[in-house]
C-alpha cells in the first residue's frame, strides 16, 4: 500500500490527467465488451460465456484487414462487421437451440465454443502471438494536457466508444426497433403474438452484442498482442462490470466499466499489489449493498 503516492497523484494535475485518461481508456474498452454481454442477457436471458471470443475475433479480423488494405478504418469495419455476422450465425445455428434448456446446458454450449473458437483461431492464424502495429497516422507524440500525457490514439478510442454508447442508448430508448427489442426482453410471447419475428430480434441482438465486442477487439488490436484465448481475461472483467452495473442495464455497464477503469488506474498508484483485488472488493461491496447491481432492476 502506497497512500503517499496516491495522495501525491490526486494533488498533482499532471498525474490526475494521466491517470484519469488511463482509467477512461481501460473503462471504455471494457464497456464495449460488457455492454454486448449485458444486452444479450437482458433480451435473451443467456449468460454468453463465449462473448470474449468475439473480442478475440474482432482483433484478428482487424489485423488481417489492416495487413491486406493498410486502412485503419477498414480494419475497424472488418472487426465490427465480421463479428456481427459471426454472432448472427452463431445465434441462429447453435444458441437458438438451447434457449429453453437448462442454464447448465447453455453454459456448457458456450464453454465448448470458447474452446472451439480458440482452436479455430489457432488453425487460421497460428498459435503464436501477433501484433497489428500502430497505424502511421497515430504514431505521433502524445498530447500534454496540464502536464499529463494523453496519447491521440486513446482519444479516438474513447470517442468511438462514447459514440457507440450514445447511439445504443438513444437507439434502444427512442427508435421503433429499440422499443421492439425492449418489449421482446419483457414479454417475448406477446411480441411474437403481434406478428413480430422474435427469432430475428434475438439474432439481431446477438449480432449487435458480438459486433460491439468485435469493435473493442479491433480498437485494442494496435496496442495489445493477439493470441488464441485472448478473450478470456477480458470476459472475466466484463462479467465484473455487468455484475457491478446490474445485469441487463446499459447505463450500468457504462458506469461499472468507468468505475473499474478508474479503480485500476488510481489503484495502481495507491495499492500497486492489490489493484486486481480492489476490483473484486468493489464488486463485493456493491453486491452486499445492492444485490442487483448499481442499475439492475429488482425481479418482479
Amino acid at each position: 500500500m502506497d497512500l503517499d503516492a496516491l495522495a501525491g497523484c490526486l494533488s498533482s494535475s499532471a498525474c490526475l490527467v494521466t491517470q484519469t485518461t488511463s482509467g477512461l481508456i481501460i473503462g471504455m474498452l471494457l464497456f464495449l465488451v460488457a455492454v454486448g454481454l449485458t444486452l444479450i442477457f437482458g433480451v435473451l436471458k443467456i449468460v454468453n460465456f463465449s462473448h470474449g471470443a468475439f473480442y478475440m475475433f474482432g482483433a484478428y479480423f482487424a489485423m488481417t484487414a489492416y495487413q491486406f488494405t493498410g486502412s485503419f478504418a477498414l480494419a475497424m469495419l472488418a472487426g465490427a462487421a465480421g463479428t456481427g455476422i459471426l454472432g448472427l450465425v452463431f445465434e441462429r445455428v447453435f444458441m437458438s437451440r438451447v434457449y429453453g434448456a437448462d442454464v447448465l446446458m447453455q453454459l456448457l454450449v458456450c464453454y465448448a465454443f470458447v474452446l472451439i473458437f480458440d482452436d479455430v483461431v489457432r488453425l487460421i492464424w497460428g498459435p503464436e502471438f501477433k501484433s497489428m502495429g500502430m497505424p502511421a497516422a497515430f504514431q505521433v507524440m502524445p498530447l500534454f494536457v496540464a502536464g499529463g500525457v494523453v496519447p491521440p490514439y486513446y482519444l479516438l478510442l474513447i470517442g468511438v466508444a462514447l459514440v457507440a454508447a450514445i447511439v445504443l442508448g438513444i437507439g434502444l430508448s427512442r427508435s421503433r426497433i429499440g422499443k421492439v427489442i425492449r418489449a421482446a426482453a419483457h414479454n417475448p410471447g406477446m411480441v411474437s403474438a403481434l406478428g413480430i419475428n422474435t427469432g430475428l430480434i434475438y439474432g439481431g441482438v446477438f449480432a449487435l452484442g458480438g459486433m460491439l465486442a468485435g469493435l473493442a477487439g479491433a480498437l485494442a488490436a494496435p496496442v495489445r498482442s493477439l493470441t488464441p484465448g485472448m478473450g478470456f481475461s477480458v470476459l472475466i472483467e466484463s462479467f465484473i462490470v455487468t455484475v457491478i452495473g446490474g445485469m441487463g442495464s446499459i447505463l450500468g455497464a457504462l458506469i461499472g466499466a468507468l468505475l473499474l477503469g478508474l479503480i485500476r488506474s488510481f489503484g495502481s498508484q495507491g495499492f500497486p499489489l492489490f489493484t486486481e483485488g480492489l476490483m473484486y472488493l468493489f464488486m463485493v461491496i456493491v453486491l452486499v449493498s445492492k444485490p442487483t447491481g448499481l442499475f439492475g432492476k429488482e425481479a418482479a
Partner: peptide, 21 residues
C-alpha cells in the same frame, strides 16, 4: 517504483502511466 502486472495481463496502461509519473 515497482510494478507487478499479472502474467498474461491484456492491458498495461495503468502500469505505463504509473511509471511515467
Amino acid at each position: 517504483s515497482e510494478s507487478w502486472p499479472k502474467l498474461f495481463q491484456p492491458d498495461y496502461t495503468e502500469v505505463v502511466t504509473k511509471i511515467l509519473q
